[in-house]
Design a protein around this nucleic acid. Structure first.
Lengths: 193, 193
DNA sequence: CAACTAGTATAACGGTCGTTCTAGTAGAAC
DNA sequence: GTTCTACTAGAACGACCGTTATACTAGTTG
């Protein structure tokens, strides 16, 4: 049989897309390399050519997701009208992801941190990178919103943010996003507009 | 019921102890049944005799941990001096667990919810049971502390609590426990004692 | 004594895991 | 026209997975 059709997207992109769907939906450890390859419609050797192994594919999956998250978050920040709402925009972005995912499974980086126990795993760097940026960007936003202690406010918001994600995952609490916005608002000076 | 309590203490208990250590430290999916059996110093058939399979062993592991958590939490509540501090006692108990675990891996029930995707898994009931009790008990404590809306306060505290656990796991934030106590205190009326 | 119980040790089952290897094809570049 | 690149299909690997089965031991109990 002749297989002349050239794929519209590159093999690497389709591998990342397949890995993104399967790792997030079924978990990293429960998802075999064969399943990723099959969903991507790609040869097994191509995966090893591009990523060298499962561990590095997992790391790439987390970084790709981080990139997308940052873009969506920044979009939500840009759409906010007040400096206070720019801080709250993280929950707008979270709400969007929560509603968009086929079945919400929480933060991919946190999930990975739960599944991976080896500290030397290449995915660890991606997890730390994601959470470090989260805190730094929130600190900037809190400072712009005239928070008395921007670093402290940002750290508090991180706690609230992580709790919101878990609450959305477990469905243990009604309206966690609304709660998070209210709790966060209490940490910021009232908007001068 | 003819099946009265036999003095079969060691085998079952040692299986639960081994499962508790391995599942929590290495994750559920990454821990094989053989490793549990080996650590427990027990025959493989004994595991199947008592639990019928891995899924039910996982569920038993989560329930055993929930029992221990409740006991420690209640002890922390009993040790608190004011009604406000009785609400905050959940963070005393959390701090104790965080400091006691060899290596803290977050809430076992949340970790299990991340690893398990099948909604029919017997462990799901244990997870829901744990989180439901959490909210109900917090509601009682908030009511006793004269919170204006005990259910709402308890739900807020759950969000803060879950966020604290994730923050402790990822070490992404300084002093999450202190933060949680301060945020929670803001949700309660000042103590009249 | 005989039956039952709880436990032991060991082997085998079909299946999946991540990884490596061989061999081949289509198209672009030199 | 040959080489190079990106990809394909498929097989094989040793290891481990959860589960089941067989056969045996020791202590209790009727």
């Amino acid at each position: 049989m002749v297989h002349t059709k050239q794929p519209s997207t590159s093999a690497r992109e389709r591998l990342l897309a397949a890995a993104g769907e399967l790792f997030y939906a079924r978990g990293i450890n429960a998802t075999g390399i064969d399943a990723v390859v099959e969903r991507a419609g790609v040869a097994l050797a191509t995966l090893y050519k591009h990523f060298g192994g499962k561990d590095r594919l997992v790391a790439a999956y987390l970084e790709e997701r981080d990139d997308r998250w940052r873009a969506d978050w920044e979009a939500a920040i840009a759409a906010a009208t007040t400096r206070q709402q720019r801080v709250l925009a993280i929950f707008d972005a979270l709400q969007r992801w929560w509603g968009t995912e086929g079945r919400y499974r929480g933060c991919a980086q946190v999930d990975a941190a739960v599944e991976i126990t080896d500290a030397d795993h290449p995915a660890m760097a991606a997890i730390i990178r994601h959470k470090t940026h989260l805190r730094q960007r929130l600190t900037e936003l809190a400072r712009e919103a005239d928070a008395a202690e921007p670093e402290q406010a940002a750290a508090d918001i991180v706690v609230i943010y992580e709790g919101t994600i878990t609450a959305l995952l477990l469905q243990t609490v009604p309206d966690p996003l609304q709660r998070a916005r209210r709790l966060t608002t209490g940490l910021l000076p009232t908007d001068s507009r």
